[in-house]
Simulated scan of single mutants.
Amino acid sequence: MKMKAISIKIEYVFMRVAALFFLAFVVCIFLQLLSRYVPAVTLLWPAEIATYAFIWTMFLGAAVMVHHQEHFKIDYLFEKLTHGRLLAVKMISHLLIGGFGLMMTIFGFQLVHLFWEWTVNTLPQLQQGYLWLALPVSGLAMVWFSISNAVDDLQEYQLERGGRTE
């Protein structure tokens, strides 16, 4: 299977999971409002779940934005450069974003390991490691998407140049 096809499938999954987390976020915010303004309703856990859901939504969305090359992009520079210089800037960008994703993955796994046994105050059966798992998951996706984007840009450059190098 080609990298592009795998990237599209990863994005598909990430977008659906992010949508579910966003839905959970909205429901928890609604429950928090009920808990504040309806005296008979007392819920402490929605704030924690809303935080977890929001963090997961944002990190999954950030990875998808890397796939679309809409993250950390300086449009002005990309519009002014052409051919080999544009490719060089794109490759540096992919390398930096991939390196950032790699650091998220490495340090994210360390945080998951460190906080795995910790529990949430208002929901003791939920481990904090699940929150920190958003870092390595999205970091791995960012690395994958950066590599996939670099391969796509190289192929596009080769097609543009007719297979010749500059």
Rank of each mutant, 00 (worst) to 15 (best):
Thr82Met: 08
Leu34Tyr: 04
Lys80Glu: 08
Tyr76Asp: 11
Leu77Trp: 06
Ala150Asp: 06
Phe109Lys: 03
Thr122Phe: 13
Leu20Asn: 04
Ser148Lys: 11
Met91His: 01
Thr165Tyr: 13
Ile29Glu: 10
Tyr12Leu: 07
Ile97Lys: 05
Arg161Met: 15
Phe145Lys: 08
Ala88Asp: 07
Gln32Cys: 14
Leu159Lys: 15
Ile6Tyr: 07
Arg161Phe: 10
Val41Trp: 14
Trp45Asp: 06
Glu48Met: 00
Leu96Tyr: 02
Leu96Pro: 00
Ala50Asn: 03
Tyr130Ile: 10
Tyr130Phe: 13
Ser35Phe: 10
Pro136Lys: 08
Phe59Asp: 01
Val41Phe: 15
Thr105Ala: 15
Ile10Tyr: 07
Val137Met: 04
Gln127Phe: 09
His94Pro: 03
Ile10Met: 13
Cys28Thr: 09
Thr42Ser: 07
Gly99Lys: 13
Leu43Trp: 14
Met104Cys: 12
Pro39Ser: 14
His68Pro: 02
Ala50Thr: 00
Leu77Ser: 06
Trp116Cys: 00
Val13Gly: 06
Ser146Met: 08
Ala53Lys: 05
Cys28Met: 13
Val89Thr: 05
Trp132Ala: 04
His94Thr: 05
Val112Asp: 11
Trp132Asn: 11
Ile6Trp: 12
Thr42Leu: 01
Val41Ala: 07
Met1Trp: 08
Gly108Tyr: 02
Ile49Asn: 01
Ala40Thr: 12
Trp144Thr: 03
His94Asn: 14
Ser35Arg: 04
Lys2Pro: 15
Leu102Ser: 05
Ala63Pro: 01
Leu131Pro: 03
Ile29Ala: 11
Met142Asp: 00
Tyr52His: 12
Ser138Gly: 04
Ala63Phe: 01
Met103Pro: 06
Phe14Asn: 06
Gln69Ser: 12
Lys4Gln: 11
Phe54Arg: 12
Asp152Val: 10
Ile29Lys: 09
Leu60Gly: 04
Met58Ala: 15
Met104Gln: 08
Gly84Ile: 04
Leu133Met: 12
Ala19Met: 00
Gly61Tyr: 05
Lys2Asp: 14
Phe30Ala: 10
Phe78Arg: 01
Thr42Gly: 02
Leu87Glu: 02
Ile55Arg: 00
Phe109Gly: 02
Asp152Glu: 12
Ala19Glu: 00
Gln125Asp: 07
Ser148Gln: 13
Gln69Leu: 06
Lys4Ala: 14
Leu154Trp: 15
Thr165Ser: 12
Val64Tyr: 13
Ser138Cys: 11
Ser93Val: 00
Phe21Val: 12
Gly162Phe: 08
Gln128Ala: 02
Thr57Cys: 00
Met3Lys: 13
Ser138Met: 07
Leu140Gln: 00
Leu102Val: 08
Tyr37Gln: 12
Tyr37Pro: 09
Glu156Asp: 08
Val120Leu: 13
Leu133Ser: 09
Tyr76Asn: 14
Trp45Ile: 02
Gly99Gln: 05
Leu86Lys: 10
Arg16Val: 15
Leu43Thr: 13
Thr57Gln: 01
Phe107Ala: 09
Leu154Tyr: 14
Met91Tyr: 01
Ala62Gln: 02
Phe22Arg: 05
Asp152Gly: 00
